Amino acid sequence: MPSIRASRFRSIAAVSAAAAVLVIPACGGGEQPELHSRVDIPGSAHVAPHWDYDAEGPDHWADLDRDYLACKSGHQQSPIDLPSHARLEPSEHITVDYHSVPELALVNNGHTVQANLPADNGNRIVVDGTPFDLAQFHFHLPSEHTVDGAGATMEVHFVHKSAAGKSAVLGVLMQATPDPSAFDPILAFAPQAVDAEITVTGPVDLRALLPGVVDQFRYQGSLTTPPCSEGVSWTVLGNPVPVAAADADRYRTLFAHSNRPTQPLNGRTVTLAGG
């Protein structure tokens, strides 16, 4: 049974430094740490501006910064509404190679609760023969992807990176249940304060966070948060996993909603492979 070590609080500078090493911009996720308003000083590094899901929400992200223009002008944006009648392509099936990890570092980054994994943790997915190593996973409420217009209570995004620097995200829909779930040791101890970190000591079995049947929707998309960069290989599992209603409610007290609306498909192909 995973256990919890004491919370640690870090400065915004420290969080940003750690994110540069450990965190792939979330797909979601990159869910990047909370950042301050842009300051342009000659010779200084560009600082990305603050964004959120409310006043400076998805409809306004592209207006906040030149680096966020893809959020409005991109043609392969995520998330999308997944059609259950997607073309069946068995050859498109990806391999998910997950196992237990000794610990997770849970961080409240101001946008989501993110679980950072130890380096060289050995968890990965293989997409079209290319391995992508798992770096972190994080949550959205309600779900970002929908199936035939219907969403789920939450969604978890497992964010991976290849040796060439490409990103691949595995999305799993989460449906509320009155019973406990495999997410309890994670969501029950989600840090309350922004920039707070809590270490969950395991082992934590990542396979328990996936459905038993891994039917897969696949398409090419983007990060679901600024800068909304495209070229992300997306796989969303067709079967939801349970999440305790109490855990979803607890997460909702931290982030009332943390989802980008679905984006136009713009002629993209969505394929479906059986598990």
Rank of each mutant, 00 (worst) to 15 (best):
P261G: 08
T177Y: 07
L106A: 04
L209I: 14
D81H: 08
L254M: 07
R8V: 15
H46G: 11
P264V: 08
H36E: 14
V241A: 03
A182P: 00
T262I: 13
L134K: 00
V172L: 00
S11H: 14
G57P: 13
D59I: 09
P226S: 09
A55N: 14
N109R: 06
G274W: 12
L254N: 06
M174D: 01
L237D: 02
N109I: 10
A273E: 02
N109D: 12
R252C: 07
H50L: 13
D249P: 03
N123R: 06
I41S: 13
F139S: 01
T262Y: 07
P261T: 14
D179Y: 08
T130D: 04
T95K: 13
K166A: 15
L170S: 00
D179A: 14
A245P: 00
D67G: 08
F132Q: 02
Y98H: 04
A45V: 15
P211L: 01
G28N: 11
G267E: 11
T112N: 07
S3I: 01
Q192I: 14
P25Q: 12
T271G: 04
T199W: 07
L134Q: 00
C71T: 05
V107W: 13
L69G: 05
E89R: 08
V21T: 12
I41G: 10
Q77G: 13
G202K: 01
S100E: 07
H140F: 02
A273K: 01
G29I: 11
P118L: 14
L210T: 05
F137Y: 07
G30A: 15
L134P: 08
D65W: 06
W61C: 03
A14Q: 15
A188C: 09
G221T: 01
T153D: 00
T201Q: 03
N116F: 11
W61H: 11
V96R: 04
E230H: 06
E230S: 08
H46V: 10
E155V: 03
E92P: 06
G122D: 08
T201A: 02
E34M: 13
M154Q: 04
E103L: 14
L187Q: 01
A48G: 11
E197L: 06
A163P: 05
L237W: 00
G275V: 04
L272M: 04
R124N: 06
D81K: 11
P178D: 05
D148W: 11
L106G: 00
V200N: 02
A152I: 05
G29C: 14
N121W: 12
H111G: 03
G275C: 07
F255Y: 12
G122P: 03
A6L: 07
Q263P: 11
T177G: 04
S37E: 15
V39A: 15
A17K: 05
S7T: 15
D247E: 06
L69Q: 05
Q77T: 10
T271I: 01
I198R: 15
S162G: 08
G274M: 09
R10D: 13
L209Q: 02
D67N: 14
T262V: 12
V236S: 02
H99Y: 13
E197A: 10
Q77P: 06
